[in-house]
């Protein structure tokens, strides 16, 4: 422990504490005089990430916790930001993460609007994170701790699953990217097309709902009790809710006409047949 503190202090020395610090800042060295429980911080990913930047070591404490002058004078929790003030402390994350492109702009994010702060998902950096990038838990446990409906969906027989585990949420969702509905990584069904590109068209003869309503009009992307993650148990039921004008020769009393995809197999679109009879 002592050796670690010495090491940390040596790292801080070249920063010349006190120089160029904002008003009411005291520098990390001053913080360490009391907070000797911060041993090991220099081995943590957050520290390593800033170690190469000039003057950052000295500023590392107050960049997150706010100016420390008042706290140094009166060491109470009222005059320093702690993990309890997640939203305020998360605002300080942007001081460094403003050049992370979309990460820096939470204003239009659904998460930010709902009051979800950085520290709800990410660790402070004082300890080893359980998952990258400094997440408090691994996916999907982290996400489903709030999104409970998705947790139910991922336990269903048909779901996006890697063996026995749900696929990582960030396979489809970009949590910091503004602009996309449901925080999808790409607009609409383009997120699905990252893997299922062959189903995204264009086709010579489109299936209009796939173009208009997109994949989720027929599929439940988080999981379904039904084969192919369909929203209905029988494909005929799914089709006939829209296709009420089946031609007269479709005698619905015969079972063969209740298995729509036996003939109309090109449900995503066809390059040869307008009735989607083959791809």
């Amino acid at each position: 422990m002592f050796v670690t503190q010495i090491f940390l202090l040596i790292l801080l020395l070249p920063a010349e504490p006190g120089d160029d610090l904002p008003e009411n800042w005291i520098g990390a060295e001053a913080c360490m005089e009391c907070h000797d429980d911060m041993v090991g911080y220099e081995t943590m990913p957050h520290f390593k990430a800033i170690a190469h930047k000039a003057n950052m070591l000295e500023r590392s404490c107050e960049t997150c916790h706010g100016a420390g002058f008042d706290h140094e004078e009166d060491a109470t929790l009222e005059n320093i930001l702690t993990v309890a003030q997640k939203e305020q402390i998360s605002n300080n994350c942007r001081e460094c993460h403003k050049d992370h492109g979309r990460d820096a702009f939470p204003s239009t994010e659904d998460h930010k609007a709902a009051g979800v702060s950085c520290l709800e998902c990410h660790g402070s950096g004082h300890k080893h994170a359980l998952s990258e990038p400094m997440l408090n838990k691994e996916q999907p446990e982290l996400c489903i701790s709030c999104h409970r409906e998705q947790m139910v969906a991922f336990s269903m027989p048909y779901t996006h699953r890697d063996g026995n585990k749900p696929m990582a949420c960030t396979s489809c969702h970009a949590t910091h990217q503004p602009g996309q509905q449901d925080l999808l990584a790409a607009p609409g069904s383009s997120a699905c097309a990252e893997c299922h590109r062959e189903k995204s068209g264009p086709f010579v003869f489109s299936h209009a709902p796939r173009e208009a309503e997109e994949c989720a009009s027929c599929h439940s992307p988080h999981g379904s009790p039904n084969p192919f993650m369909l929203t209905r148990a029988q494909s005929s039921q799914l089709c006939l809710e829209c296709h009420a004008d089946t031609p007269l020769f479709h005698d619905m009393s015969q079972s063969r006409f209740n298995a729509c995809t036996s003939c109309h197999s090109a449900v995503h679109g066809s390059n040869t047949n307008p009735h989607l009879l083959e791809e």
Binding site: T231, R232, A233, Q237, L240, E241, A244, D245, T246, P247, L248, F249, H250, D251, M252, S253
Partner: peptide, 16 residues
């Protein structure tokens, strides 16, 4: 609500 022309004009409901 559903509607099938054959074998006879028949209305019904698709219930899930």
């Amino acid at each position: 609500s559903t509607l099938f022309y054959a074998p006879q004009l028949q209305t019904g409901a698709s219930r899930y």
